[in-house]
Design a protein around this nucleic acid. Structure first.
Lengths: 349, 349
DNA sequence: GCCCTCGTGTAGAACGTTCTCTACTTCGAT
DNA sequence: ATCGAAGTAGAGAACGTTCTACACGAGGGC
């Protein structure tokens, strides 16, 4: 029982059609397309006219078989993270007027799922990869980086196969601690992500952040007052962390977090416990996402210049893709504190 | 001056390698891969062993040249819209255990940019496309739909070349008006997106929403009280709209919007004007994004079941891609009102 | 005039798959 | 025994590009 004939999907215009129409060889058209060496102005003009006339667009998948696909793949765990959106914007703006297209693989948090997505991107012949704080096993990232130019955003681990763009999270943590201490706080707790274990990244952002926090506290002579609580960077994670910390025997007067969204969860917990912000609790986020600036929120946060990070990553990647650089490099951004209304002088208790 | 030799990018394992290793023909391996007809159990086993042993993965770009790429492309204007994230999750969950990969093209709001992105997706041989509220010219969408299976989310325009998934936005508007009228409000304003013009979509969500609003107001005998204000669905857009509406001669006592993020802009405007929510102004969002539920916000909103919409769109698309259906269809979701703390009884003024 | 070089153009292999077609078995019915 | 069908395997073209290698003609230097 055969189904009725396929609804004739219209045929694509190919390079052969263009060549025939212009009365030249396929090779010549290809040269014009890639503006390779050895094309006379007359030839170029003829071919370009034919391209325009037929509305020809190169078939990226076919291109990929030999040369480039002019496609950059971006791995993301979570579309909801507004900070990642900033990075994406940066990438997009940098690449807007190039011939490259950006495709995003949104993988979720599961490391295996992420690994699968990275493989998908490689199998689809991406010219280059930007991995935003990948949870994938480090070895696997190094392996793909060996065959496809790769930029890793977030992890501080150095490597000579891939480039890196990171934020000086330790300095960021220091900024926050300084600010809070300046307001008279001493019991300052940090809520950061659980340091991932199995994937073998030694220096994910949360680790560096924690180090910076500990160092800054020590610098202020508050080593005995440190408290690090691990929680998922989500509303729920923040809520639970907030509940735990704020109902403890000696609750902190200020809490800083590694992500704005977690800070909002803490906000909710404080609310539920009848604590006012900033009167009873100072609260600081991280990443300065749109969330933090939102009217009813007004969260003090640390700005990471996501846009710049994205743009930088894209620029570095293209250098590699086009073979203009063959040594790994790393760019470090400097964070900046943005003070809003969620932090205030500590009142005696 | 030639650069030092390329750092030898490691070679891929190809189907030929697998065939050689298993001692069979390339064609046989291909058959096993696609589990096509005409493969003996012994053959299947041998080949699968070879695949596992060599760690072979099919090269999607090469596949695309003849058959499928097992890739679904999603067009998005704005990663920041949390509602779209819900849709994406739905798509991803539906496709998780299939062999398809989802790649996202984030295009921004510019219609030309979006058109470019759609073309990019087509050129990369996506097996199917999901377009979320595309701003691209309708004709162009119809043209691509003629050659690549396509599902359009959001626009209510009917078409026989592509499938559609929409929300009954008119009913959603009705729910809000009913709720607000039930609370005693009569001066209820609507802030919705500017109806797009040039792209020739006749029934984008905002148009349907506006119709529903007008119809509901009329049903309550409030036809004379309608006020529709156009604004961009962003914090800034909402802020400006709020300023205009709330400083008018006879300001509304309730404002409903087509997007949560715009409602937050209005929130900010109200704040700035010294109006309290919900005491002085009732405010309703749309889409019930994570934003609305956020602790400090607590925005009454309309839930569109983005997750289900995404999953449905994915299911419909795959049916088409695999040729199990050849007639266009449309699925309509029913919205649900989620009442939170941003709406209250209208106090006499 | 002859040989080189340079600039321009083309032929055709290659990329890694899918898929149509043909060839070879084997088995059952005649 | 013979024929046909059914089941399985493989050869090789095709997909739309890139890219290497080569051919050809025009100048330039001797």
């Amino acid at each position: 029982m055969d189904r009725a004939e396929e609804p004739r999907r219209s045929k694509r215009v190919t390079i052969t059609d263009v060549a025939r129409h212009a009365g030249v060889s396929v090779a010549a058209v290809s040269k014009v397309l890639r503006n390779a060496y050895g094309v006379s102005p007359a030839m170029r003009e003829k071919v370009q006219a034919a391209i325009a006339e037929l509305g020809y667009r190169p078939h990226a998948a076919a291109r990929g078989l030999r040369g480039r696909t002019y496609t950059i793949g971006v791995l993301l765990d979570n579309v909801r993270n507004a900070f990642f959106a900033d990075i994406l914007d940066g990438i997009r703006d940098e690449l807007r007027n190039s011939e490259y297209t950006v495709l995003i693989g949104a993988a979720g948090f599961d490391p295996e799922e992420q690994a699968k997505t990275v493989r998908s991107l490689v199998d689809r012949q991406m010219d280059g990869l930007i991995l935003i704080a990948p949870g994938t096993a480090r070895d696997e990232v190094l392996a793909t980086a060996a065959s496809t130019p790769t930029v890793v955003i977030g992890h501080h681990d150095t490597a000579d196969t891939h480039d890196s763009v990171v934020d000086a999270d330790d300095i960021g943590a220091g900024l926050v601690v300084d600010h809070l201490v300046g307001l008279g706080h001493r019991d300052i707790a940090l809520v950061s992500a659980q340091g991932t274990k199995a994937n073998r990244w030694k220096r994910p952002p949360e680790t560096v952040l924690t180090e910076g926090y500990l160092a800054a506290m020590e610098r202020h002579g508050l080593a005995g007052h440190t408290r690090v609580h691990h929680a998922a960077y989500s509303d729920e994670g923040g809520f639970k962390a907030g509940m735990t910390l704020l109902t403890a025997e000696r609750p902190p007067t200020a809490i800083m977090t590694g992500a704005d969204v977690a800070a909002l969860g803490i906000y909710r917990a404080a609310h539920e416990l009848g604590l006012r912000i900033p009167d009873d609790l100072s609260l600081v986020g991280y990443n300065n996402t749109a969330l933090a600036a939102l009217a009813p929120v007004q969260l003090t946060s640390v700005d990471q210049a996501g846009h710049t990070m994205g743009a930088t990553a894209a620029r570095m990647l293209i250098e590699r893709v086009e073979g203009r650089r063959d040594r790994a490099m790393r760019t470090t951004m400097t964070p900046r504190l943005v003070v809003r209304r969620s932090t205030a002088e500590q009142r005696g208790r």
